[in-house]
Design a protein around this nucleic acid. Sequence first.
DNA 1: TGACATACCTCATGCTTTGATGTATACTGC
DNA 2: GCAGTATACATCAAAGCATGAGGTATGTCA
Lengths: 125, 125
Amino acid sequence: MRPRNTELGELLKGHTPTLLLAVLRDGPLHGYAIAREIERRSKEALRLGEGSLYPALRTLEQEGLIISRWETQPAGPARKVYALTETGAAELIKRMRSWRDFVQAIEDVIGGIPHVQQPTGTLSG
Amino acid sequence: MRPRNTELGELLKGHTPTLLLAVLRDGPLHGYAIAREIERRSKEALRLGEGSLYPALRTLEQEGLIISRWETQPAGPARKVYALTETGAAELIKRMRSWRDFVQAIEDVIGGIPHVQQPTGTLSG
DNA sequence: TGACATACCTCATGCTTTGATGTATACTGC
DNA sequence: GCAGTATACATCAAAGCATGAGGTATGTCA
């Protein structure tokens, strides 16, 4: 995962598989499209490098959390389409719980963060 | 950082320095006590291994974000007490913002997580 | 004497991201 | 035809960080 604006990328160490599973929850998708979808959903805050993407997909498949099939197109290169397995769906729920625990634990340590949103435009002068 | 119940530990890759700075915001503390404080605040969810703790402290000191002094006790081994610098305090604010952006980005991807708290005891039965 | 807690430090190992490189197809502009 | 860009897969060396074990030393308790 590479950063866009700040240094979010290197903070991602173990979270990439969770993102992949989460995107596949909404239906099968091929690798390249998964990466694009993560960018889109995160509003370009996260960007998945191919050196992270493909190894992570292979690992998830070896663990039985996703399955793949090759799909040829009338035009363009073949795609490897991934789908969530039942095991993978269950694992996603676990990992989302784990994510919540993780966030809670960190925020317990760093203290309450005031949830003040920065206004997008110059509303006050 | 090592896990306690689940596998929170390995998810921490780049967040340890932020935790250290956050704990030192409330006053100087020696390394070992910082680790204990992180455990206490996170309700034992996070545990900082010494192989993570001491290298991270050294890096932060080299970056000028914290300073240290040795302190001898009437009884027991000497302690290295760390304190936040002004630069460190400013950096902490940056990293807390970065943390918020990170959490937001991940949750944008994995979807809304219902914030339902598990009751601690057996209130219904 | 042994076990345990405090308190510092180092190091091999392993996992994951980064960033570059490689292959191939298809479209666009020159 | 050729260069540039986008799609779409894959691999690999290098670097970063946590893990877990090991080492040193002091102090307390049984």
